[in-house]
Measured scan of single mutants.
Amino acid sequence: NKFNKEQQWATYEILNLPNLNEEQRKAFIDSLKDDPSQSANLLAEAKKLNDAQA
């Protein structure tokens, strides 16, 4: 299913963002699990935070 693929991709991407700390990473991944339909939005937020902390 589409959300499952998006969720897996977003999880992979978030795990590989270098500037997030473990707590932030875990929070994003927990949110992905809670609502896979928000995968794209959550990934965008994670990338923004990652860039802000660069």
Score class of each variant (00 low, 15 high):
38 Q>D: 07
32 L>K: 00
43 L>Y: 11
52 A>N: 06
40 A>F: 09
17 L>H: 02
12 Y>K: 06
33 K>R: 11
48 K>W: 13
42 L>W: 09
14 I>R: 00
11 T>K: 08
33 K>N: 12
9 W>A: 14
2 K>V: 04
8 Q>F: 05
34 D>I: 11
26 K>G: 08
40 A>H: 09
5 K>A: 10
10 A>I: 06
50 N>E: 02
24 Q>W: 02
37 S>D: 05
50 N>D: 05
19 N>P: 00
26 K>W: 10
1 N>D: 15
37 S>K: 09
1 N>V: 03
10 A>R: 02
53 Q>W: 07
32 L>T: 02
35 D>E: 09
26 K>F: 09
13 E>M: 14
23 E>V: 12
43 L>E: 01
12 Y>A: 13
51 D>S: 12
53 Q>M: 13
26 K>Y: 05
30 D>Q: 07
31 S>D: 09
35 D>T: 09
32 L>Q: 03
17 L>W: 01
25 R>N: 01
38 Q>R: 10
38 Q>P: 01
47 K>S: 05
22 E>G: 10
53 Q>G: 07
4 N>H: 14
27 A>T: 09
35 D>W: 10
51 D>N: 10
53 Q>S: 09
25 R>S: 04
12 Y>F: 12
31 S>I: 06
13 E>A: 08
16 N>H: 14
28 F>Y: 12
20 L>V: 02
17 L>R: 00
49 L>H: 03
8 Q>P: 01
7 Q>F: 15
11 T>G: 04
48 K>T: 10
15 L>F: 03
25 R>D: 00
6 E>W: 04
9 W>L: 15
24 Q>L: 04
39 S>T: 05
54 A>L: 08
48 K>G: 04
25 R>Q: 09
24 Q>P: 00
41 N>L: 07
53 Q>V: 07
50 N>T: 01
53 Q>R: 07
39 S>Q: 03
2 K>M: 14
42 L>I: 13
30 D>V: 08
23 E>G: 05
4 N>S: 08
6 E>S: 03
19 N>V: 02
18 P>R: 05
45 E>H: 05
11 T>W: 15
3 F>K: 15
6 E>L: 12
3 F>G: 15
1 N>K: 08
42 L>M: 13
40 A>G: 09
10 A>H: 07
10 A>S: 03
52 A>D: 05
27 A>I: 12
54 A>Q: 11
8 Q>I: 12
29 I>Y: 03
19 N>R: 04
36 P>W: 06
14 I>N: 01
41 N>T: 10
21 N>W: 11
7 Q>P: 03
18 P>E: 07
29 I>R: 02
7 Q>N: 03
2 K>Q: 15
51 D>H: 07
7 Q>Y: 14
4 N>M: 06
15 L>E: 14
19 N>I: 01
44 A>W: 08
28 F>N: 00
4 N>K: 03
21 N>K: 08
12 Y>H: 13
32 L>N: 01
21 N>P: 03
27 A>Y: 14
48 K>M: 12
11 T>M: 15
18 P>M: 05
26 K>I: 09
50 N>A: 05
22 E>F: 11
27 A>R: 11
44 A>E: 08
48 K>I: 11
34 D>L: 14
43 L>N: 01
23 E>K: 11
18 P>H: 05
3 F>W: 03
50 N>F: 01
36 P>N: 04
43 L>V: 14
20 L>N: 00
20 L>F: 01
4 N>L: 14
49 L>E: 03
49 L>S: 03
13 E>F: 05
41 N>D: 11
1 N>L: 02
46 A>M: 01
54 A>E: 12
46 A>L: 01
15 L>G: 08
38 Q>N: 13
52 A>S: 06
41 N>A: 11
23 E>N: 13
16 N>M: 10
14 I>Y: 01
15 L>H: 06
11 T>Y: 15
40 A>T: 10
47 K>E: 04
28 F>Q: 00
47 K>I: 13
45 E>S: 14
10 A>M: 03
1 N>M: 01
8 Q>Y: 07
31 S>G: 11
43 L>T: 04
45 E>L: 09
50 N>V: 01
6 E>I: 09
51 D>K: 10
11 T>E: 15
29 I>D: 01
49 L>Y: 05
22 E>V: 10
36 P>G: 10
21 N>R: 12
48 K>F: 05
18 P>F: 06
27 A>E: 08
41 N>K: 12
3 F>N: 15
24 Q>V: 05
49 L>W: 06
7 Q>D: 11
42 L>H: 08
15 L>P: 01
12 Y>Q: 14
19 N>F: 09
27 A>V: 12
7 Q>H: 04
10 A>L: 04
44 A>Y: 12
9 W>G: 04
51 D>R: 06
10 A>F: 06
41 N>Q: 12
18 P>W: 03
33 K>E: 12
29 I>L: 11
8 Q>T: 04
28 F>G: 00
29 I>T: 05
39 S>L: 09
10 A>P: 02
24 Q>R: 02
11 T>N: 12
6 E>M: 09
25 R>V: 06
13 E>S: 07
12 Y>L: 07
3 F>L: 15
40 A>N: 06
52 A>F: 11
17 L>I: 01
48 K>P: 00
38 Q>T: 07
24 Q>N: 02
23 E>M: 12
46 A>Y: 02
25 R>I: 06
49 L>F: 07
32 L>P: 00
2 K>S: 15
3 F>A: 15
23 E>D: 13
49 L>M: 10
51 D>E: 12
20 L>H: 00
16 N>Q: 10
46 A>H: 00
